[in-house]
Write a protein that binds this DNA or RNA. Structure first.
Lengths: 124, 124
DNA sequence: ACAACATATGAACAAATGCTCATATGTCTT
DNA sequence: AAGACATATGAGCATTTGTTCATATGTTGT
């Protein structure tokens, strides 16, 4: 092994394997910012729970109040409320108050699109 | 409170609040099967991690071997391999062997569509 | 067959997540 | 103002998840 090659490998800093620097540099330049990718993962994390998925699907059918969602899912009002908060914070749902009751609904169409896209994938 | 009303509320089985049965029945009939919703959540769970998101985005740019991904992400080869397994099991990536090296690439276009849709949402 | 390389896998552990229980906040009725 | 009702919130706990470490599997060259 000649000197240049040895030096290059040492420059890889102990990382596994042969030289990938070319491919890595090329791809690396095209990747979105670290923060963006993090936010993206956060966004998808909201869909990564069946309770929240159920809520979103339910709201896709109709605006609903917390009590109705609670009854529909057959779980605690507290559990539902906690999940609604998560959905609210991610701007996936919006709400309006009518007396004591609070009605939730989908915030935009992205939600529907994403759900549909996911469905397409798993139905194969 | 008359008898019919009292009986109806008792039929709600202690669940919180006033009567939602009408809305619940209507929405309930439209909801996908429990299993489907579960699978859907599982599917989205794959996107709910920044490491996997990075891998997917990298593979969107180019087919890559494990070593290159490892170097690109600056993490352990083991960690990358574990995540690739998850992606593989969800049919989001495919791979081909070339000697000792294994090259990974995206399995279909849904991945790209989903990522793009997610991006659209967070960039607002 | 053996050593070197590329990738995969299992166990263990820390961090994150979702639920429950108790209680708080906000609204209406009387 | 007080009680009933609808929803929200915080702490605690059990489960899940992602990483690391050590090691296994598979491939190539000698």
């Amino acid at each position: 092994m000649d000197d240049t090659k040895r030096l290059m490998e040492e420059a890889l800093d102990g990382e596994a394997g042969h030289d990938h620097t070319e491919a890595v540099r090329r791809v690396s330049a095209q990747l979105p910012e670290e923060d963006i990718l993090y936010d993206l993962a956060d966004f998808f994390r909201i869909f990564a729970d069946s309770t929240r998925i159920k809520i979103l699907y339910a709201l896709y059918e109709s605006e609903l109040c917390v009590g109705a969602i609670t009854q529909l899912l057959g779980m605690t009002q507290s559990a539902v409320s906690h999940q609604l908060r998560a959905l609210k914070q991610s701007k996936l749902v919006k709400y309006r108050r009518e007396g004591k009751t609070i009605f939730y609904s989908l915030a935009d169409e992205h939600v529907v699109t994403i759900l549909a896209q996911g469905m397409e994938h798993i139905e194969e």
